[in-house]
Nucleic acid binder design. Sequence first.
DNA 1: AGCACAATAGTGGCCTAGCCAGTCTGTTGC
DNA 2: GCAACAGACTGGCTAGGCCACTATTGTGCT
Lengths: 261, 261
Amino acid sequence: MARSKAAMPETVWASLDERAAKPPEGHLVAEDIATQIQELIIREDLKEGSRIPSERELAQLLKTSRPTVSQAIRILVVRGLAESRRGSGCYVIRRPEISLAASVDLMLNLNVESVKHLAELRFMLESAGINIAIARAGPNDISAAGRALRKMRQSVGNTAAWMTADTQFHAALVRSSKNPYLVSIYESVHTALIDYEHRGWVERGEIPAWLEPDGPDSLMAVHEPILDAFERRDIAGAQIAVERHHEAMTQHLADAADPDD
Amino acid sequence: MARSKAAMPETVWASLDERAAKPPEGHLVAEDIATQIQELIIREDLKEGSRIPSERELAQLLKTSRPTVSQAIRILVVRGLAESRRGSGCYVIRRPEISLAASVDLMLNLNVESVKHLAELRFMLESAGINIAIARAGPNDISAAGRALRKMRQSVGNTAAWMTADTQFHAALVRSSKNPYLVSIYESVHTALIDYEHRGWVERGEIPAWLEPDGPDSLMAVHEPILDAFERRDIAGAQIAVERHHEAMTQHLADAADPDD
DNA sequence: AGCACAATAGTGGCCTAGCCAGTCTGTTGC
DNA sequence: GCAACAGACTGGCTAGGCCACTATTGTGCT
């Protein structure tokens, strides 16, 4: 009992049990509870990292059963608002990006023939993003991008390392825009595309394009101009560089979908 | 029994119970089941609209308990892959956009002070999108946009009608790009913003900006040039028109956040 | 024959009760 | 002082059962 009381200011949770007053007219109780807790998280009555009372306590408090509370928490987990650790408890997090990334990934998998459209969206985001990024980037942003590109060069040949390095480089660029939505969506799109490529390779037992003879050179040749333009704060140059990158990637995707080399 | 058998080709579901072989090392059984069914949906072994076996049947088939299956289905519902109707059954749908829209909305609510960033993203999407839209729009796309704008003009004064008309107009433009990802994300962003504005009005008991004396005129003046440029397939003009629209909207948001008129 | 209508199975939502494998804490024994 | 342990507490899962709702099917009436 001591453990739970320490992390549970009664006042916050007292506001919940009014649910009893609302008969579930169309509402589902579990989802109702989920959105109520979500509201508390949004209002920051529940801060990040704080512990949600145990399922048993909540069930008693809300005058429902434990499975119902359990379902509510599962919903919050899927939405990226909670994280439950067996034996310990359930903790508040604020990572809606998790759900966002999952959605984008799902969309791609549900409609695989539309990879090109997703790549196109990535291009649009990167293209528009680097404009703002150049305008708002501080010294650390630029150095971070440089560091990521160096790491990329080093990890050519190692598929996993390259994937994360590539992601980090592009993420560093987009992050410089200081627009959290752009960053989240861009990263979701990017990793969905990379994962899709990766899955394709392992399924067909092929090797990534950049392990082919001239792979590394051509790949770096597509990325370095972006960093150059970014460092020089050359918007027009960056546009062109990003466009080149997009064309090269589209080519890769086309090759992957229709392998005839 | 007759009802369920009709909609249940045994072969598809037989592949699931291999789950028993995998001990849940870190995996959670409920999520495992969810992703397995998700896989079936992705592969279109389960087509849209088809009925998922009852929770009881699935539980028996997968050698688990009913609440576990229930949680799995709840997860699918949140992800926009299933829809369960009480008394009838659970049916497959393919609407990951639902989850995507929820994510965007959540992000905005978790970080309310960043409305401007979301508006900025909308601008980026619309700006880049209308480029492609002009290139790919067919006659129906253009007439659809025209119809939407007309509806918009008619519904000035009626908040709810205006909101949907506005959404439809912008959606019609973006839809012309034929890029499903752009469409989904744009719509999510747009409705999140509109809903945010709307919530603000009702909370503060204010009236929408377009009900003010010169509201309707100024609003339509911001939208009509977009349609004009779109109809003339004038890319440069569309860019400017979209930019004007964005500036006006940013102004509205600023007024809403800091009401001093 | 055709149609409104009640009986009936089947469904998802929810509840009670309880077991298990984790985890954390406070204490005990060295 | 500290390491090992014991117990309380946690979430994950199971079992079985009730309810409100829905769809079908069979019935009786027109």
